[in-house]
Nucleic acid binder design. Structure first.
Length: 931
RNA sequence: GCCCGAAUGGCGAAAUCGGUAGACGCAAGGGACUUAAAAUCCCUCUCCCGCGAGGGAAUCUCGGUUCGAGUCCGAGUUCGGGCACCA
């Protein structure tokens, strides 16, 4: 089995090795493809050679390829396999192109699932996590990924998180972190803080109790101080998908607006003004009420004396806190019994508390203009509040002006209505019927501002309010500061000590890391650190008196915001060292689109913080971003007698088809029962439709899995798992193996005649043209397009051609054999990044004496690609009517003449006049004809 | 609700800058080989009309721009991702 080799560093178990002076000579090529043996052998080879150990080499063209590191949830899932295969293909391609590559791997090891597992099984999160990491590493190795394993890290290791603690203290010193109260989901039964994910329909996931909101002191990072830079620098990320940049820009949500002070009509409750933020000062005369968040001080004050308000505030403190829940919730509110004075009209305007106003955005208060805001309109209609129209379209304005003029003219003129005018009247009627228009337009009913368009009205009204001291321009962001405190055990301890005398004191740097005890077992009732006096009790570093240690830990997004820099400086006795300067920024970062906003924004923020703390001069972490799609699988269920659904794993389901191949029935293999197909969905426990990568690797080999993953869909799209598809991948690899084996069997591998282009037959030239076309295409697909599925398809086309070439006898003579050798060499190299094990083995078989990963990437030969003739399409009025074959260097006139000579073309031109002829070089000719 | 995507044969997809729609693969049907099966190899394979040559229709829906639209523009439908404590 496999190849007999002389080198003891390349052992195959249970074999006798033939001795030879060649490093890895091929004595004999196995006729059949046997993935298990060759994959193991190739992996051993890379290991022994240290092929993927990254070493900083000044002057070398570096390439840092990174996939988002996994959460160690237990075993690898298909999403991981896909993500890491993409990264590995890019890495291996770049390595073959001669770049000095770094591809590290690690684990995002802190987080909630470890605590959930602990609650369920009573195992400490640390033990569970480390054991999962071990399992997953073995699986990653089995897939043959070209990682520098010497840089493996896990964020739960003190050597990692101590620098995170150190960094937090630097930020504290620079005033970039602060502490304030903020709301959390509180489960009153379990006496614990819940993650949003653990709140289901407003109730705790385990207790079922209605969730309350509590204010607790938490640490925040001032990401808003970097809002402008985070927004502006997006434009420099020219190798990021536009969708991600747009999402981040919208998330930051920079808006120019006006802060306006409304004086309370009856100064009470201490405060005498209410400040709102608006981006639409042009609608200022349309304000008919003000709305504040339920937690706004004015609402809380009103609640003191008004039971209805108190009930509303109380009710708003229950249930979900997510923005999605707030926005979809029924719009409700209560009047506060407080009026304010409109600064320009002097009118009294009522103030309401409303559940759709967010305390965290702007000032927690808004001016409502129901005629020009959907939400305000809905709320006003429901509560009988006034609606005042102050904006019209430019056409409406023009028409009203005209009507005003017409009023002074004679009746005769009035009667002659222009059709365009009538349509405008119709448009006005339509827009008035709506009752709410949010588009910008021209002011009406706005005193001296009537007739001003948006920009002019914005400036004029702003100027007037500024002059009155009742308003000021302000830039507002949707982005909020980043709350990093989590009331959880399994995370990086926040390095703070609370002292009664000195308040919050950072842990001195020489006492870092603050180690997290690894033997605690959470039980779902709060953070076990709170019940661990050895952890909590300490002395104040400032005054030496007894003090309490912070028991909150960091949001795990903090852990993942700088790991890429640590990989580059692995083991440094500092957060990062000079090696980070060599490797950073990451040249390509690959991961799920679900991280488009949060993780990627936080990582960008952290890199800017690290720069400003003086650690580096890199401003952006990821030069290029590839967002991969998810892996889906069909889910099947049977309906139980009780009417519930029992989900059946896809591997236990047989599919029946009709003569056309259309699926007619899904059958449970065990019981023969007909199942319901629930369609494609993400692989999940609840639908029992997960496919275990391990089973597939065991059955088909790592190369087949890798090939299938890369071939089935382009990286950004979702990938639908198919058992038949993986078999097709295996089939291609066996065909490829056989093609090389047949060639090798024809004679001494590698010993072929020198190619003499002038002596080649037409068929041999065709093979070379196809080969060099393929090389050009595949190179572009790997390098620029990341279009691996089409690169593979091109390799398959070439392989199919080589089969026909062989079967047609084209490879029989000495030159044919040389052409075949050239083509097979290149084909194996082109496929090597995707199916590295089989390529490794075939490369030796083809007679080479260095590993394929160390061979220079094959270049496309432009001369071989030149064709004598080209096929053109002839269209008449854009419809395909004929095809012609013509000399590649034919002139436009010659092309037209040849096209007109076509019989079918003649038929369609007969009796018509040619109005226009369009010739597209190398593509088509189009005649525009008419009778 | 808001923000961002996606939609092409029975299925996964391709068409890279507006120029032959369906490359490549899967499934299916027919055939070869075989005692048989598996494996392998060959042929067919968007739909409709036609013996054929060929013609018509077709890229989620409706409309527009263009000699020419899967690709650009407008309106809509459905599905997916995110919405700040899942990672």
């Amino acid at each position: 089995m496999g190849f007999f080799t002389s080198n003891s560093s390349y052992p195959l178990p249970g074999l006798n090795y033939a001795l030879s002076s060649q490093p890895y000579p091929v004595q004999h090529m196995q006729q059949d493809y046997s993935p298990r043996d060759i994959e193991r052998a190739a992996q051993d080879f890379w290991n022994e050679q240290g092929s993927f150990r990254a070493v900083e080499k000044e002057g070398a063209d570096k390439f840092y390829c990174l996939s988002m590191f996994p959460y160690p949830s237990g075993k690898l899932h298909m999403g991981h396999v896909r993500n890491y295969t993409i990264g590995d293909v890019v890495t291996r391609y770049q390595r073959m192109r001669g770049r000095n590559v770094l591809q590290p791997i690690g684990f995002d090891a802190f987080g909630l699932p470890a605590e959930n597992a602990a609650i369920k099984n009573g195992v400490p999160p640390a033990q569970w996590t480390y054991s999962n990491i071990e399992t997953m590493c073995a699986q990653l190795k089995r897939l043959g990924f070209a990682y520098d394993w010497s840089r493996k890290l896990a964020t739960c290791e003190p050597d990692y998180y101590r620098w995170q603690q150190w960094f937090f203290i630097q930020l504290l010193k620079k005033g970039l972190v602060y502490r304030r109260n903020s709301r959390v989901n509180w489960d009153p039964v379990d006496q614990t803080v819940l993650a949003n994910e653990q709140v289901i329909d407003g109730r705790g996931w385990r207790s079922g109790a209605i969730v309350e909101q509590r204010e607790v002191p938490q640490w925040f990072m001032k990401i808003t101080a970097y809002a402008d830079e985070l927004l502006d620098d997006l434009s420099g990320l020219d190798q990021w998908p536009d969708a991600v940049k747009t999402m981040q820009a919208n998330w930051i949500g920079r808006s120019q607006g006006l802060e306006i002070d409304f004086k309370l009509a009856d100064a009470a409750d201490g405060a005498d003004t209410l400040t709102v933020f608006t981006t639409r000062p042009d609608t200022f005369y349309g304000v008919t009420y003000l709305a504040v968040a339920a937690q706004h001080p004015l609402a809380l004050a009103a609640a003191e004396r008004d039971a209805t308000v108190a009930a509303f505030v109380e009710e708003a403190s229950r249930g979900d806190v997510t923005e999605a829940a707030m926005e979809t919730m029924e719009k409700r509110g209560v009047p506060l019994g407080v009026d304010v004075i409109h600064p320009l009209t002097g009118a009294r305007v009522p103030v309401w508390a409303a559940n759709f106003v967010l305390m965290g955005y702007g000032t927690g208060a808004v001016m409502a203009v129901p005629a020009h805001d959907e939400r305000d309109y809905e709320f006003a209609s429901k509560h009988g509040l006034a609606i005042r129209k102050v904006i019209v379209t430019e056409q409406e304005w023009a028409l009203e002006q005209r009507a005003a003029t017409l009023g002074s003219l004679s009746d005769e003129d009035d009667a002659v209505e222009h059709p365009a005018q009538q349509s405008l009247i119709g448009a006005i009627a339509a827009s008035s019927a709506d009752g709410c228009t949010t588009e910008r337009g021209v002011c009406i009913n706005s005193a001296e501002f009537d007739g001003l368009a948006f920009d002019a009205a914005f400036d004029a009204i702003t100027a007037k309010l500024e002059a009155l001291g009742a308003g000021r321009r302000r830039i507002n962001y949707r982005l909020r500061d980043w709350g990093v405190s989590r009331q959880r055990y399994w995370g990086c301890p926040i390095p703070i000590i609370y002292c009664e005398a000195c308040d919050a004191v950072p842990v001195p740097e020489d006492q870092l890391p603050v180690r997290l005890p690894e033997d605690l077992v959470p039980d779902g009732r709060g953070n076990p650190l709170l019940r661990t006096p050895e952890f909590v009790n300490c002395v104040c570093p400032q005054c030496g008196k007894p003090a309490r240690r912070e028991t909150d830990t960091f949001d795990t997004f903090v852990d993942s915001s700088w790991y890429f820099a640590r990989f580059a400086s692995f083991g440094a006795d500092a957060m990062i060292d000079a090696r980070a300067k060599y490797w950073m920024p990451v040249d390509i970062y690959i991961g799920g689109i679900e991280h488009a906003i949060l993780h990627l924004l936080y990582a960008r923020f952290f890199v800017k913080l690290m720069r400003d703390v003086g650690l580096s001069d890199v401003a952006e972490p990821f030069k290029r971003l590839l967002t991969q799609g998810m892996v889906l699988a069909e889910a099947y269920y049977r309906t139980t007698e009780a009417g519930g659904r029992e989900w059946i794993a896809p591997k236990d389901v047989d599919v029946e088809r009709d003569a056309k191949g259309v699926v007619t029935r899904a059958v449970h293999r065990e019981s023969g029962e007909t199942l319901t197909a629930a369609g494609m969905g993400t692989m999940s426990k609840s639908k029992n439709n997960g496919i275990d990568p391990q089973d597939i690797i065991d059955a088909h080999g790592a190369d087949a899995v890798r090939l299938y993953m890369m071939f089935t869909a382009p990286p950004e799209q979702t990938l639908e798992w198919s058992d038949a598809g993986i078999e097709g991948a295996g089939r291609f690899l066996r065909r490829l193996w056989k093609l090389v084996a047949d060639h090798v069997a024809q004679g001494e591998p590698g010993a072929v005649a020198t190619l003499e282009v002038a002596k080649l037959s037409a068929a041999q030239k065709d093979v070379r043209r196809k080969l060099h076309d393929t090389l050009a295409k595949v190179g572009d697909d790997y390098e620029r397009r990341f279009s691996f599925n089409t690169a593979i398809a091109a390799c398959m086309e070439l392989s199919n051609l080589l089969h026909r070439f062989r079967d047609g006898g084209g490879a029989a003579d000495a030159q044919g054999r040389a052409v075949m050798q050239e083509a097979l060499d290149a084909l194996v190299q082109m496929l090597a990044p995707i199916v590295p094990h089989v390529a490794h083995e075939l490369w030796w078989a083809l007679g080479h004496n260095a590993a394929v990963i160390d061979a220079p990437w094959p270049q496309s030969d432009a001369a071989a690609r030149i064709a004598d003739t080209v096929a053109l399409v002839v269209q008449i009025n854009g419809k395909l009517r004929g095809k012609i074959e013509i000399a590649a260097d034919a002139s436009d006139d010659q092309v037209i003449a040849a096209a007109l000579a076509d019989e079918n073309v003649q038929k369609f031109i007969a009796g018509q006049t040619i109005r226009k002829q369009i010739v597209v070089k190398g593509k088509l000719v189009n005649f525009v004809v008419a009778a």
